[in-house]
Structures are given as C-alpha cells and as structure tokens.
Amino acid sequence: MPVGPIHRDLPSTAFFDGTARGELLLRRCTACGHLCEPSTMTCPSCTGRTFDATPAAGGGRVVSWTVVHTRNGAGTVRTPVALVELDEGPWLEGQLVDVEPDRISTAMGVRVDFERAEGGEAIPVFRIV
C-alpha cells in the first residue's frame, strides 16, 4: 500500500519542512554533538535538551523488518516496512519501496527517499541499495 496521510503538529514542524525539501532532519545535541532521532527531546547520551537540526546523509541499514498483510476486496496487500539504523546511529521506521518483499533481509543497505500521500506531509521511505 502507498504511504498514508499524515499532518504536522508543532513539534514536527521543522521535520516536515525538511521532508518537503528532501531532507531527513536529525537532532544534533548542542551540548555533546550526539546525533539523535528526529523526535528526541532529551539527548540519550548526555541528557542535553537543546538541539540543532542536521540533515542525515541518507544511508542506513535494515535492523529489522516486517511485511504487513492487509485485506481488501481484491485480496491481500503486502507492505514491507523496516526499522532502519541510519549511518549516523538513529533508528527510524519507514516503508521499503520498490522491493519484492521476499528479497528483503536484515542488514541490507538502504537509502532514504520521501513519499507523500495526497493532502499529507512527505515522510521518509527507504530503497534497497
């Protein structure tokens, strides 16, 4: 299935401004420089609470993955979704696009891209590299 619609809220405003221009914005702790996943409010490395937005380079690998089965009138739709570890360290869930589900395996390299549903914000998806 294609990605679903999603709206921004106050904490995610900068993030979705980033995805709109093709950037996956991580949060870089201003105290220790640790690169954190985009929703982080307290740095897991130093407990710092102020961050700069830093674009991820875009590479990562599959930590784990599933193929979600949903049923509609025509049959079953298989949607592969991965838990991805970005090269910078943070984890993020994202749909795996343009891949045959039976070819997926853990530790595969991926590269971020963005897709958006009609009327929604762009969200990160991943392509096998």
Binding site: M1, V3, G4, P5, I6, H7, R8, D9, P11, S12, F15, P38, S39, T66, V68, T70, T79, P80, V81, L92, E93, G94, Q95, A117, G120, I123, P124, V125
Partner: peptide, 15 residues
C-alpha cells in the same frame, strides 16, 4: 494518531 512523529509508523504501513 493523525499528526506528528507518533503517526509516522502507521503512515508507513505498520498496523
């Protein structure tokens, strides 16, 4: 949830 970071897994296809 329809909005924000917590909605990303669902929008990505996780159910």
């Amino acid at each position: 949830t329809p909005a924000g970071f917590s909605a990303i897994p669902y929008a990505s296809g996780l159910r």
